[in-house]
Simulated assay, not measured.
Amino acid sequence: MAGIVVVFDFDKTIIDCDSDNWVVDELGFTDLFNQLLPTMPWNSLMDRMMKEIHSEGKTIEDIVEVLKRIPIHPQVVPAIKAAHALGCELRIVSDANLFFIETILNHLGLRDYFSEINTNPSYVDEEGKLRIFPFHDFTKSSHGCSLCPPNMCKGVIMERIQATVTEEGKKKFIYLGDGAGDYCPSLKLKEGDFVMPRKNFPVWDLICKNPLVIKAEIHEWSDGEELGQVLLGLINKISIEENATFISTDCKLQTISVHETLPQALPVQQ
């Protein structure tokens, strides 16, 4: 299935919480975070929180140990490995940060399954403090998208990925996400693509308000088990459709039994 690119959000999609909130809460800085939240953009706030956490004697090793405990549904890792084994190219587009994401993926043994991670850059400075920077430097210029936060437009990233992979041949996309920031890239998907919004989360609510503006087929999911079932069902569906032109009419293979398990598209709400 070299023709399929699966693009994952990270927080509340691959993992089952927000990694920023998880680290802040687990290290005991929730009150300070809530106090500062109204005063600056989220991305800038996380950089500030890392400074505060470091000043209170917490180390990078403390942050790593917290990240290793992050909640994840037990079916998500097998689903990612299965999609990769089927030949899909896997990418991440996330408004978390590179240190958090790579630490978690390395702990889960998943880092090498992803060909690209698009997220806010971060690094550990000479003092041992984690620094977090915006993906898009909004202090110099705006990315111009009113749907997205100032530091990252996932739609712009999605368009860049589309342009890159289409040079290599026709590709189908499956996009999975949960947050409001996942709405913009969903609008960039084309007919023949698939979007998997997490049910009863912000991106789901936005899509349901006007599903007709989404060109991709919409397939909901509610937890990690359903994520795996729907994702692998869609990969199976694409595989059957792509191979159909090469199958003679008297050779049905196993399309009937497979078809019964395929996920149904979300009905358009009038």
Rank of each mutant, 00 (worst) to 15 (best):
S44Q: 10
S44R: 12
L45D: 02
M46A: 07
D47Y: 01
R48A: 11
R48M: 09
M50A: 05
M50L: 01
K51R: 13
K51P: 07
K51W: 08
E52T: 04
E52L: 06
E52G: 06
I53W: 11
I53G: 07
I53V: 13
H54V: 02
H54A: 08
H54C: 06
H54R: 10
E56S: 09
E56W: 11
G57P: 03
G57V: 06
K58G: 08
K58L: 07
T59C: 03
T59M: 02
I60G: 09
I60K: 13
E61I: 08
E61R: 12
I63W: 06
I63G: 05
I63M: 11
V64C: 09
V64S: 09
E65H: 10
E65W: 11
V66F: 09
V66K: 07
L67Y: 04
L67M: 13
K68M: 09
K68H: 12
R69K: 14
I70L: 14
I70A: 10
I70C: 08
P71V: 11
I72K: 01
H73E: 10
Q75L: 11
V76M: 08
V76L: 04
V77L: 10
P78F: 04
A79I: 06
I80S: 01
K81S: 12
K81W: 04
A82K: 15
A82I: 07
A82E: 15
A83Q: 09
H84R: 15
A85T: 03
G87A: 12
G87N: 06
E89N: 13
E89T: 15
L90C: 04
L90H: 05
R91A: 12
R91W: 09
I92N: 05
I92W: 01
V93P: 00
S94Y: 01
S94D: 07
D95R: 01
D95K: 00
D95L: 02
N97T: 03
N97H: 06
N97I: 07
L98A: 12
F99P: 08
F99I: 12
F100M: 05
F100P: 04
F100I: 00
F100Q: 06
F100H: 13
I101P: 00
I101D: 00
I101G: 02
T103Q: 10
T103M: 05
I104Y: 03
L105V: 00
N106G: 12
H107M: 05
H107Y: 13
L108R: 11
L108C: 05
L108F: 10
L108T: 03
G109N: 05
L110G: 08
L110N: 03
L110I: 03
R111H: 08
D112C: 05
D112W: 07
S115A: 15
S115V: 14
E116Q: 13
E116S: 15
I117R: 05
N118I: 14
N118R: 14
N118S: 15
T119D: 04
N120A: 01
P121M: 06
P121Q: 02
P121A: 05
S122G: 12
S122K: 03
S122R: 02
Y123V: 04
Y123F: 11
V124M: 00
E127K: 11
E127L: 12
E127C: 09
K129M: 14
K129I: 09
R131I: 15
R131S: 11
R131N: 14
R131G: 04
I132V: 15
F133R: 14
F133M: 15
F133Q: 14
F133T: 14
